[in-house]
Simulated scan of single mutants.
Amino acid sequence: MAIQFLVHEPGDSVGVVVVEGVEAGQELTGWVMENDATITVTVKDAIPIGHKLALKDLAVGDTVIKYGTDIGKVVAPIAFGGHLHVHNVKTKRW
């Protein structure tokens, strides 16, 4: 089984795409590193390698969790399987 995205901890709200050419509607397999589990997600958008995908629906103001840590806040709604990047997530630092 090929792994197309990585998740650090089971409670994370995002995974990181590790393959090129991900297109909307594609079903991806992810590896949850902490507990050695796999999950599948059908992506809503094309997602470049190194970018994040949502593992649940995220509303404006929600906190994005990666590595079990707060990495930012949602500034535009993101559907389960959607693309997360600077257009819809911002740091809380400023």
Results as ranks from 00 to 15, higher is better:
M1N: 09
M1L: 13
I3C: 02
I3K: 13
Q4C: 04
Q4T: 03
F5Y: 14
F5T: 05
L6W: 08
L6C: 07
V7D: 09
H8T: 11
E9W: 01
E9D: 15
P10R: 03
P10T: 09
G11N: 12
D12N: 09
D12E: 04
D12R: 08
S13P: 03
S13G: 09
V14W: 04
G15S: 05
V16N: 01
V16Q: 02
V18T: 07
V19I: 14
E20G: 05
E20D: 13
E20R: 13
G21L: 01
G21H: 07
V22H: 04
V22S: 06
E23V: 09
E23S: 11
E23N: 12
A24L: 00
A24W: 05
E27G: 04
E27A: 10
L28M: 07
T29Q: 13
G30E: 08
G30S: 04
V32I: 14
M33W: 05
E34I: 03
N35E: 14
N35G: 06
N35I: 11
A37F: 01
A37S: 13
T38I: 08
T38W: 01
T38D: 07
I39W: 09
I39S: 00
I39R: 05
T40P: 07
T40I: 00
T40K: 04
V41Y: 02
V41P: 00
T42H: 06
V43M: 04
V43W: 01
V43Y: 01
K44F: 04
D45H: 14
A46R: 01
P48Q: 06
I49P: 01
G50D: 02
G50V: 06
K52T: 10
K52S: 04
L53I: 05
L53V: 11
A54M: 02
A54Q: 03
L55C: 03
L55I: 11
L55F: 06
K56I: 09
K56M: 14
L58I: 01
L58M: 15
L58Q: 11
V60E: 14
V60P: 05
D62R: 12
D62N: 12
I65M: 13
Y67G: 08
G68S: 00
D70Y: 07
D70W: 02
D70N: 15
I71E: 07
I71V: 15
K73R: 15
V74L: 12
A76R: 14
I78L: 03
I78V: 13
I78R: 07
A79F: 02
A79M: 01
H83G: 00
H85W: 13
H85D: 10
H87V: 14
H87Y: 10
H87S: 00
H87Q: 11
N88C: 03
N88T: 03
N88K: 08
K90G: 04
T91K: 10
T91L: 05
R93L: 13
R93H: 12
R93V: 13
W94K: 15
W94Y: 11
W94L: 14
